[in-house]
Amino acid sequence: MVHITVKLNVSLRKYRSSLKINEEMPILIPSDTTLAELLEHILQIPAEEVAIHMVNGIKSDMDRILVEGDKVAFWPPVAGG
């Protein structure tokens, strides 16, 4: 098992409504878990609601395997001006 943290941002926080803005949620996940698995099976957030996913601040592929200490963050579609 590996320790990671997850941040859910903007509208995605509705899936864990107790999370505060920008709060990191620690979770222990099986080793070899991919970002896609994390989203679908552990967090159970519909993939179509997620536009941007980052691991340690870097946009990553969904088949990336998460390792100890990874900081994962998800965003719905957002933009600024």
């Binding site: 107790s18 979770i27 222990l28 878990t33 552990i42 967090l43």
Partner: peptide, 18 residues
């Protein structure tokens, strides 16, 4: 799959472990 399911429950604030 059970480990994955445990992580899911943890992410909802439950004290559960493998």
């Amino acid at each position: 799959p059970m480990q994955v399911d445990i992580s899911r429950q943890q992410s909802h604030g439950l004290d559960v472990q493998w």
